[in-house]
């Protein structure tokens, strides 16, 4: 067994991050009490669903071009919170799915949230929909829902590509309050320009910890902060060394 060339730094980084993650998760409940900085986009979820309730209209939720990857798992946490809130407030929630393999998981998350909210009978299986696994066919399906189904709040959290602007502009045209979040840097300008609130990059991954205060998720957030501090340290030291013609750190991280 041999380490693949150029992956040593990745391995060291992976070990440090995993160790830091397990350390903070073990600290458990003490960490869960620590304050997390306010994320306007997540606070706006209540406002968006409240507005839909007042208007007697529905909420639409999309995870974009979802798959079993990190952004989708982060989005499940927000969906669970949203579904719980819509169940409590008796607001219809329509979830549109792109990947057929993710669709049953989405159904389960929404159904579970309705059960937890004490309203299992209010769950409507027809409102969790698989549309298409072709990008633009899916986009046209979502546009159809936004145009026809009396939606007051359009929530978009996950992995978005070229369809992001189509969703955002149509939602804007229909007068929806729009709360979004993605880690896809090329779609962030569209969301920030058109939508009311946007979670940027890591804020999407922090959503679970922010909404649930689950000790495991808050611990993970602490580990991410340690990672960011290390990255900052490496960038600063690397910049200073490079400015003085020292390349040893650059060579080291390439290993």
């Amino acid at each position: 067994m041999q380490l693949i060339a150029g992956r040593l730094t990745h391995l060291v980084w992976f070990v440090i991050f995993t160790a830091s993650l397990s350390f903070y998760i073990k600290r458990g409940r003490r960490i869960a009490e620590l304050p997390i900085r306010r994320v306007a986009g997540l606070d706006a979820l209540d406002e968006a669903i409240g507005r839909a309730t007042e208007m007697g209209m529905g909420v639409h939720y999309t995870m974009g071009l979802q798959d079993f990857e990190a952004q989708t798992f982060a989005s499940f946490e927000i969906l669970r919170y949203t579904a719980g809130l819509t169940a409590k407030m008796d607001v219809p929630l329509i979830v549109s799915n792109y990947r057929p393999q993710v669709h049953p998981v989405t159904e389960e998350v929404v159904r579970g949230a309705y059960v937890l909210a004490g309203k299992p009978d209010a769950y409507q299986a027809d409102n969790v929909r698989f549309l298409s696994d072709q990008q633009l066919a899916y986009a046209s399906g979502v546009v159809g829902i936004l145009e026809r189904e009396r939606i007051a709040a359009n929530l978009m959290f996950g992995n978005f590509y070229a369809e992001s602007l189509i969703f955002a502009e149509v939602g804007q045209k229909m007068g929806c309050i729009q709360v979004t979040g993605t880690a896809n840097t090329h779609q962030l300008p569209f969301f920030t320009a058109v939508c009311d609130y946007c979670l940027i990059g890591e804020e999407l991954y922090a959503a679970g910890a922010y909404l649930s205060r689950n000790p495991v998720q808050v611990g993970s957030l602490m580990a991410q902060d340690v990672g960011k501090l290390l990255a900052l340290l490496f960038i600063t030291v690397g910049t200073v060394l490079s400015s003085f013609g020292q390349k040893w750190l650059t060579d080291l991280v390439k290993k």
Partner: peptide, 30 residues
């Protein structure tokens, strides 16, 4: 800056899923 933060977030959530610490997607109940 955004990519570094997002990559760390993705690592955190992926590890939690792999280690079974993130269970919300399994039954809808954490």
């Amino acid at each position: 800056g955004i990519v570094i933060g997002a990559a760390l977030g993705a690592m955190g959530i992926s590890l939690r899923v792999i280690l079974g610490l993130e269970r919300g997607h399994l039954s809808g109940v954490e």
